[in-house]
């Protein structure tokens, strides 16, 4: 075993890259859940974003249109969930599962011709001397643009929820939809908007997987990333900056286990490849054992104005 081959700076840099897809999906889902909706379809939206982003990037030869298309496609797909749960008042858990199954099927169908292809990928930004700084340069100034977009999104969501009136209304709809409704806010519209935003974020996360992280399309390539994003929202107790912590923590475990596998550590491969999921379970258990949840009051409950 040769730990010496693991460069800590590159390791941290790759942690940031490997955390970005989950970070996108989790920050979107956080907004959805803060509005009072539990969308379990993150995995389906991510995988759809992954395939649409890949297909568009391959066809246009540029990654950025891919990201835009991925966000749009996943957001539109998430609206099927929105309409079913908000207008047709279907069970959110079941509909979210359905969304995941539909997304996996849809993406496999769209992605068939693209298997084994290579996509154009995002270049790392280059700020000249800044990027050439030792350690800091690579970590802070040496990523592709989407890593920064994800970070900006976290800051934006935090500021939106904390400082804006719209954010306050969104939280009101999530904490107590009957009270929000009585105050005259359009609960259903607010939630549909939140679901749309969550879908777009999941799509960006998926596209980051297929365009930067891997970068290739394989069927079902999200491999549970959407579910882990859901777990991270719980881990974060619905707070934006903690989503960032959770995503980087998780990215760290993923990268570490890959590095350990590559370094030939004397640990069974099955244990290593299962470790991200085991860590997620462990974190969920610890969080729930601590007893502090902070879940929005109306989370997952259907809203019907007559009641």
């Amino acid at each position: 075993m040769d730990f010496g081959s693991i460069n800590p700076v590159l390791l941290l840099a790759s942690v940031m890259v490997s955390a970005t897809p989950i970070l996108f999906a989790a920050i979107g889902e956080l907004v959805v859940e803060r509005s009072g909706v539990l969308n379990l379809g993150v995995e389906g939206m991510m995988v759809t974003g992954a395939v649409v982003g890949f297909a568009v990037a391959v066809n246009t030869g540029a990654p950025l249109p891919g990201f835009a298309a991925a966000a749009l496609a996943s957001a539109v797909l998430s609206l099927t969930f929105g309409v079913l749960t908000q207008v047709f008042l279907s069970n959110q858990v079941a509909t979210g599962l359905g969304l995941t199954l539909v997304g996996l099927g849809l993406s496999a169908l769209i992605g068939k011709p693209y298997e084994g292809m290579k996509s154009p990928t995002l270049p790392r930004i280059d700020l000249g001397p800044l990027t050439d700084l030792p350690v800091v340069g690579r970590l802070v100034f040496g990523h592709d643009i989407m890593v920064y977009v994800a970070l900006a999104l976290v800051a934006g969501v935090w500021a939106f929820l904390r400082y804006t009136r719209a954010g306050l209304i969104l939280r009101a709809a999530g904490e107590n939809h009957d009270a929000a409704h009585a105050l005259g806010y359009k609960v259903i519209r607010i939630r549909l908007a939140a679901i749309f935003f969550g879908g777009a974020c999941a799509g960006l996360g998926g596209a980051y997987l297929s365009l930067v992280r891997v970068p290739q399309w394989t069927e079902g390539m999200t491999a549970g990333a959407g579910w882990i994003a859901l777990a991270i929202v719980v881990f974060a107790s619905w707070r934006p900056w903690w989503v960032l912590v959770g995503a980087y923590l998780f990215g760290g475990v993923t990268v570490l286990q890959l590095n350990l596998q590559a370094a030939g550590a004397q640990v069974p491969v099955a244990l290593l490849s299962a470790s991200p999921y085991l860590v997620t379970i462990l974190v969920l258990v610890v969080i729930s054992a601590r007893g502090h949840h902070g879940a929005p009051g109306s989370l997952g409950r259907p809203f019907h104005a007559s009641q």
């Binding site: 079941a94 199954l101 099927g105 169908l109």
Partner: peptide
């Protein structure tokens, strides 16, 4: 017909059921 379309078909079935169930 691509195999994945059947998967999508099954997913749609659940979606429509949940919708009609209203």
């Amino acid at each position: 017909v691509p195999g994945a379309s059947i998967q999508l078909f099954q997913g749609m079935l659940l979606f429509f059921l949940l919708g009609v169930d209203v």
